[in-house]
C-alpha cells in the first residue's frame, strides 16, 4: 500500500505552518521507507488532487481555526466532515471533496482512504516563522502519533526542523 502524507499551509504565517512542519518532520523520519512519502503544499483544491493521485492512502495535515478546544487541539476528520480546516479548499478553485469528485469522474487513481488531521491554531493571521508554543507541541504530538501509526521510529532531532 502506498501512502502519501500531505502537509498544507503557509510556513511564514505563524500557526498556519503546522501542516507543512509536520510533513517536513515526517520526511526526515521516512528516510529509507519506500511505501510512504511526505510532501508539502501551499494551497489545497486541485493541487491536492495532483498530490494524491497514484496513492492508496492519503493523510492530509492542515491548520484549523480555533474551534472545539484550546489552541493545539488535534482533530481527526474524514472527508464527510471536512470544511473546518484552513487550506484544504483553494481560493482559486475548489474544496477537497469536489477535487476528489473531479478525480473520480475522470477516472484518476485516487486513494481509497483519506484521513485528515486538523491542528487548531491560535494565530493564523500574523506573519511569523515560529508557531505558537501550543501548536509547536501539537505538531510534535501529531508526528509521534503518525510515527506510531506508520510504525516508524519516533526519536529524531526535532528542533532542527521546528
Amino acid at each position: 500500500m502506498k501512502t502519501i502524507i500531505i502537509g498544507i499551509g503557509n510556513p511564514i504565517l505563524t500557526d498556519d505552518c503546522a501542516g507543512v512542519t509536520v510533513a517536513r518532520m515526517m520526511q526526515e523520519r521516512l528516510r529509507g521507507r519506500t511505501d510512504t512519502e511526505a510532501v508539502t503544499l501551499s494551497a489545497g483544491g486541485i493541487r491536492l488532487l495532483d498530490a494524491m493521485t497514484g496513492y492508496d492512502r492519503a493523510i492530509i495535515i492542515d491548520a484549523m481555526a480555533p474551534a472545539s478546544g484550546p489552541a493545539g487541539t488535534l482533530q481527526r476528520l474524514s472527508l464527510d466532515d471536512l470544511g473546518g480546516t484552513w487550506n484544504t479548499a483553494s481560493i482559486h478553485d475548489m474544496n477537497l471533496p469536489t477535487a476528489i469528485g473531479v478525480g473520480r469522474m475522470l477516472g484518476m487513481p485516487l486513494p481509497d482512504q483519506v484521513d485528515i488531521w486538523g491542528i487548531e491554531g491560535k494565530d493564523l493571521e500574523t506573519f511569523g516563522e515560529e508557531p505558537t508554543p501550543e501548536v509547536a507541541s501539537a505538531i510534535l504530538r501529531l508526528v509521534d502519533m503518525l510515527c506510531q501509526e506508520l510504525q516508524l521510529p519516533i526519536e529524531c532531532p526535532i528542533r532542527e526542523v521546528l
Binding site: A43, T88, I91
Partner: peptide, 9 residues
Amino acid sequence: THALPGAMP
C-alpha cells in the same frame, strides 16, 4: 488578506 477556509456552507 489571507487564505481562509472555503466551501463551507
